[in-house]
Design a protein around this nucleic acid. Structure first.
Lengths: 248, 248
DNA sequence: AAAATAGGGTGTAATTTGTACACAATTGTA
DNA sequence: TACAATTGTGTACAAATTACACCCTATTTT
């Protein structure tokens, strides 16, 4: 975390090394203890939180930039990361323009490319950026105030995720390697914010053919030990490409 | 259509009025005589065709820019126009960078926001831009060579359109006000490039509740006169928002 | 140690939806 | 007036979805 003075020096060169007018914001979803989480940051100047973001290096492909930004905040790489929308309102960074009036780089309009990521909660080591003192998971049921248009970005990402659930498999990136059927169901219920019938859920998800049933069960629980499953990566990838079912 | 010399003068001010590094490309789909069409342009310097595109004015929202660009090439406004992907490879405009080496504006990297539009073929009056001598519809079965990465942009738009068909209604923007069931089916078959059973198609599409059956029939054909339909805009809009069915 | 409790595994009947068909009706043309 | 081509509508069958019930097992309670 740097002071405003230091920040300005730090970012003085930004105009030279980053592509002007273009930024990237990432909505990073994780799942832990039956709750859906988003990775967020907070500067100590303001009470408002914001999403992990950054800029595109002059000669860097944007997908690579998104990956780099994600890695800088989480330590992880090669996860599900996908464009979902571009936010291009000229006033979306009005607050920053005013706050950093004398900074050449921040005092410009930014078109922000929104990416959403699905990651395994336990793999992430949240790391603040140069604006922030805190980088941490926030529960979807307990969200803070957002900076700029980041609430809109977040909300759009969540809508996209819910839509994706209907025609593509989900879970590989969000779940640990091995998991039980009730755990996977809980993920779906949490994303959709809706209860599902466990028997029908199981039949349907097994019908997609994207799961491997393992011999072991999850011991240590207070009740009957449930079977463990893992994803069948080959079928999972195929389903991501082809879509699940439905349609014409 | 301007000469290279004139073009450079014409675009000398571009750096001042347009947001640098950001461009917009539109894939405009139309439907005519049972064929799916894309609007394309051709300059006479090169044999390669390209998609309608343009830039974002300094203080212009990007949605508005896309609408403006579409209107400049087609004369129409307020149609189905939607972001589908951002193309951000640093080499995607390599050819232009080399061709317009001495032009400050074109000799820069562009991140292009892809929009696709669904329009009523007969409403469009194709108008060339300052680079082109020709602006016209091209049949999807008879596509020319593309400039830059425009084949990729087009292909991605088509994939998106096909996906959209599965969870959202389509047709309102592509069909005339009144149309017959076989005509609408033909649209679906053309987009999907696949035959559908007409009886099942009719039952399904009627099931969505987005059509009004009219009393009149389409006279003048060589056979039994089919009924005319129009879209029920209220239900259509609701279905666009909610999605059609399926899912959890 | 036995009973109670809380989940978890699996099956089945009823309903809805999807698929594959066939036949009658209408229009212009031979 | 018969014919060809196309549209309108119906129906039997298969598949998928929904709404349930019953049993099993590991821990907790008594």
């Amino acid at each position: 975390m740097l002071t405003k003075q230091e920040l300005e020096e730090h970012w003085a060169q930004a105009e030279e090394i980053y592509l002007n007018h273009v930024s990237i914001d990432c909505v990073v979803f994780g799942f832990h203890e039956g709750q859906l989480k988003v990775l967020m940051l907070k500067s100590n100047n303001e009470e408002a939180w914001y999403l992990p973001g950054g800029f595109v290096l002059n000669e860097e492909p944007i997908e690579q930039a998104a990956n780099r930004i994600l890695k800088e905040r989480t330590g992880i790489d090669e996860v599900f990361l996908r464009q979902f929308h571009v936010f291009g309102d000229p006033d979306r960074t009005k607050f920053h323009k005013e706050t950093y009036k004398d900074n050449l780089f921040f005092n410009q309009r930014f078109i922000s490319i929104g990416y959403y990521a699905l990651v395994d909660f336990v793999d992430v080591k949240p790391m603040p950026d140069s604006f922030s003192e805190v980088c941490t998971w926030r529960d979807l049921n307990d969200l803070p105030e957002f900076q700029l248009d980041h609430e809109n970005i977040f909300r759009t990402a969540l809508d996209t995720l819910r839509l994706q659930l209907n025609y593509q498999p989900i879970g590989y990136s969000l779940m640990p390697q091995e998991f039980t059927m009730p755990e996977l169901q809980k993920l779906y219920e949490t994303i959709l914010d809706k209860k599902l019938d466990r028997r029908n859920f199981q039949r349907r998800i097994l019908g997609f053919g994207i799961l491997n049933k393992l011999q072991q069960t999850r011991k240590g629980g207070a009740h009957k030990a449930p079977y463990l499953y893992s994803f069948n990566l080959e079928n999972y990838r195929a389903a991501l490409k082809e879509g699940l079912q439905g349609g014409w």
